[in-house]
Nucleic acid binder design. Structure first.
Length: 472
RNA sequence: GUGGGUGUAGCUCAGCUGGUAGAGCGCCGCGUUGUGGUCGCGGAUGUCGCGGGUUCGAGUCCCGUCACUCACCCCA
């Protein structure tokens, strides 16, 4: 009976240690920035009742269901008395916004509003995987939620905080594209479009399809006249790094109260983000951004990464005024969600990002013979007591092999213990009695020096694995 | 969910109209008897994804199946 060889599960990425180190480092940096802005940490359970996950009976979402092995078949979601049981079935959450909305309602009495939180967790979606698109992946969200009314300046705030967080990461250049649902809805309504959502769905594909195809679709699927189509395409064509888009929209000659409201909101976000604009992180108004999710009511965000445009947006979000409500009180929010896995996995795959070594150890203590293991353990412990990650060689092989062992893991230093007397029990590990002294070798340069385990320190940059960006 | 592509050594892949499973890299050993990397020499490793069919004979042809992958859909 041969053991079946394990095969990778598509869409459930697993990282090697060096990459996982980078991912953890990224998460730590995100945390630090979020907390610096006063966002509180929250973790929600991995599961929600299906009724919570599927708003308004939409079944198109590919949700993973959770079920006990011993549950009787009656409880299976697909059983006869369907809808009710189905609603109580547990599903793995597919984002962090919907569970957070539920969390806010559940804890409304204990939270202070406006409530600002960050949440970095795995989410699951049953869709077919491909690069940048996974079935299990990590998102990092920040949201601000208020009771009844959420001041607009929070729209600007979440954009700025995420911009700051992203700017601190070792990534290619990023472009945050901002639009406003009120602006485009108002515009489409002002144009006279009957089916506004249909127009948004088509416009959302504008960067993937040629303009003629979009025009045809606007006519066929949204029932627009050629003139209306022209106006909608003209709007989608507008983008600017400052608030000059306002005048360009004005020049199209459409008027609608909602459009005006959207224009001024978007201008406020763009102006407010001017300060975070750098050569590696740019913010712009892009009136073609629509977003598929229907709960957005105002500001919407998408983010593209230079050289990785095919991934789509790596960080998106927006304003949702009515996602959470208990019937009496509503909790409007605004948030933005970073796809940590979508961001990092393609960079790993293309060798654009990795760690300087695959283990935390800065030092490998060479083992002369098995009798010296205790003595070498003491040396390692002395180094560790001063924060230097150290491991002892697993085997007393020839030193050449032990050096190679370190080299393959990227461990920069090999420690050669001082030679010991026959009586090693009481030996002072810091001194060589008549033999060779302790020495430590930088295996990259080959430089080897006499050293004392109680005082020697590696250069600061060698203390921990470093994030490195070959070719960036 | 819809439509393509690909499955051969740890990795990247070659393998012609069917005829004894290969290369490079990596790995292990020795040269170099306790200080790696270069170089030289030697060595190990495969249910050819799985199941069936055709055939004297299948990695190769046919059918099925699974997995991976790409595009669509959708989205982080």
């Amino acid at each position: 009976m041969t053991a079946p060889k394990p095969t990778p599960l598509s869409g459930f990425p697993e990282l090697l240690p060096a990459e996982r180190f980078v991912e953890l480092q990224v998460i730590d940096q995100l945390r630090a920035t979020f907390e610096l802005h006063g966002f509180a940490p929250v973790e929600t359970r991995a599961v929600e009742p299906l009724s919570q996950l599927l708003r308004k009976g939409e079944i198109d979402k590919e949700v993973y269901l959770l079920r006990r092995l011993q549950a009787d078949d009656e409880a299976v979601a697909s059983s006869a008395d369907g809808p009710e049981r189905l609603a109580n079935t547990l599903g793995l959450h597919f984002d962090l916004t919907v569970p957070f909305a539920r969390y806010v309602l559940e804890n409304a009495g204990k939270l202070e509003f406006p409530f600002r939180r960050y949440q970095i967790q795995k989410v699951w979606r049953g869709e077919r995987p491909q690069e940048g698109r996974y079935r299990e992946f990590t998102q990092a969200d920040i949201d601000v939620v208020a009771k009844d009314v959420l001041a607009f300046h929070h729209d600007v705030e979440v954009a700025r905080v995420m911009a700051e967080a992203l700017s601190a990461l070792p990534l290619p250049a990023l472009r945050l594209q901002v639009n406003n649902r009120k602006l485009i809805e108002g515009f489409y309504r002002g144009v006279g479009a009957g089916d506004v959502p249909a127009v948004m769905r088509v416009i959302d594909k504008i960067d993937k399809l040629p303009a003629e195809v979009i025009a045809t679709m606007l006519a066929d699927e949204a029932g627009l006249t050629p003139q209306q189509t022209g106006a909608c395409l003209a709007l989608a064509d507008i983008r600017s790094a400052d608030s000059s888009f306002v005048d360009r929209v004005g020049a199209l000659g459409i008027s609608d109260p909602l459009l005006d409201e959207g224009l001024s909101e978007l201008a406020e976000v763009i102006d407010g983000c001017a300060a975070v604009d750098t050569d590696r992180f740019t913010v712009e108004a892009d009136l073609s951004i629509a977003r598929g999710l229907d709960y957005y009511t105002g500001t919407v965000f998408e983010t593209r990464m230079a050289g990785f445009e095919s991934l789509g947006s790596i960080c998106s979000g927006g304003r949702y005024d009515s996602l959470a409500s208990d019937g009496r009180t509503s909790y409007p929010g605004v948030g933005i969600s970073l796809g940590v896995t979508r961001l990092l996995t393609p960079l790993f795959a293309r060798k654009k990002l990795t760690a300087s070594r695959s283990v935390p150890s800065a030092v490998l203590v060479a083992l002369p013979d098995e009798q010296s293991r205790r003595r070498c353990g003491d040396i390692a412990q002395s180094l560790r007591s001063r924060g230097i990650a150290t491991e002892v060689s697993p085997l007393p092989q020839k030193y050449g092999k032990q050096i190679r062992f370190a080299e393959r893991r990227g461990i920069p230093f090999v420690w050669f213990p001082a030679s010991s007397d026959a009586d090693s029990s009481g030996a002072d590990v810091s001194r060589a009695d008549g033999g060779t002294p302790h020495e430590v070798k930088d295996i990259r340069s080959g430089e080897q020096v006499v050293a004392d385990p109680s005082t020697w320190e590696p250069p600061l940059e060698d203390l921990r694995p470093q994030v490195v960006q070959p070719g960036l």
